[in-house]
Design a protein around this nucleic acid. Structure first.
Lengths: 155, 155
DNA sequence: TAATTCTTGACAAATAAAATAGACTTTAAT
DNA sequence: ATTAAAGTCTATTTTATTTGTCAAGAATTA
């Protein structure tokens, strides 16, 4: 039972954006450098997060990505959902019941109830944590903020 | 974030054993037939569960497997632990910190705390459910018990 | 128009999950 | 003792998923 790197990288990247947010959109190359994630791969993840409504983007010079809501309105659960596709411990408790691999014991299975309850509890917790919480934590533990290099020249 | 089939099959199989328990050891072929799991694959899973201390076995004719503790003393968490090897949402919160893929941000990472707390909550719940609870559920929903075919001839 | 940045879809390598197979050992019953 | 019915051990194979790379394209700003 492991979370894929898409979720882990996705959360790290969005936290990074929230923590280092400036007036200009954040660029892949900066985020990937700070978080040590392959820029090409991060692009892909950001497309998923865009489709999930968490990110918006602007092309062209000085373009980049920005959060589509305030950090305290973006939960970890939403990020995982967008990155992972769906968040279920086992297939048989997926919400969109159009899942192909339906188990032949569906709905008359005592183990299904366990997986469902476990998934719910997990989701409850992950829904209770927002990007703002992470930023507060980071600040509390004294994590440095990097200045936007695009401003460096004017100092 | 999915649980592997080893855990799902493992739980189903152990529940099956607890629910249909008789005086003789339960045999792979019966469990696999009732639960529709490949017998050869179930053998493998049972080896893991044996190593995890949940099962014991007797060889030879009329041999088979039996639970090494009472159903109310076997938790779902223990089963997953034995089947899955280790139960962690992400590598960086594994207990046996000898994990190779240590993240370079270890211990100074705000996302790590989230994964750790989520793993803990999940484990807390799964540790609170035992095989006996599953049997009670099954009984309550009227699931049929199969008679042991090895007794059939004497009826 | 030129440079920069995101967009899209295809592709490939690596890893892990799932299942199958065969030779072997132990045990109970006869 | 012999035999047949179990479990045991270790490979191997197959399949699916994850992870990551690449290249051509489209939008935007300066």
């Amino acid at each position: 039972m492991r979370l894929s790197t898409k979720s882990r990288y996705g959360l790290r990247a969005l936290f990074d954006m929230a923590y280092h947010a400036g007036t200009l959109p954040a660029q892949i190359k900066d985020i990937s450098r700070r978080q040590n994630i392959s820029p090409r791969y991060l692009e892909q993840i950001f497309q998923d997060l865009k489709r999930g409504g968490l990110l918006k983007s602007r092309r062209g010079p000085q373009g980049g990505y920005f959060l589509s809501r305030k950090p305290n309105e973006i939960t970890v659960q939403q990020i995982i959902m967008a990155a992972e596709g769906e968040m279920a411990l086992v297939d048989c408790v997926k919400s969109g019941k159009g899942c192909k691999k339906e188990c032949e014991f569906d709905n008359q299975c005592v183990t299904q109830k366990i997986w469902l309850e476990a998934s719910n509890r997990l989701n409850d917790y992950l829904s209770s944590v927002t990007l703002k919480d992470l930023c507060d934590d980071a600040k509390a533990m004294g994590m440095e903020k990097e200045l936007d290099h695009r401003f460096m020249y004017f100092i």
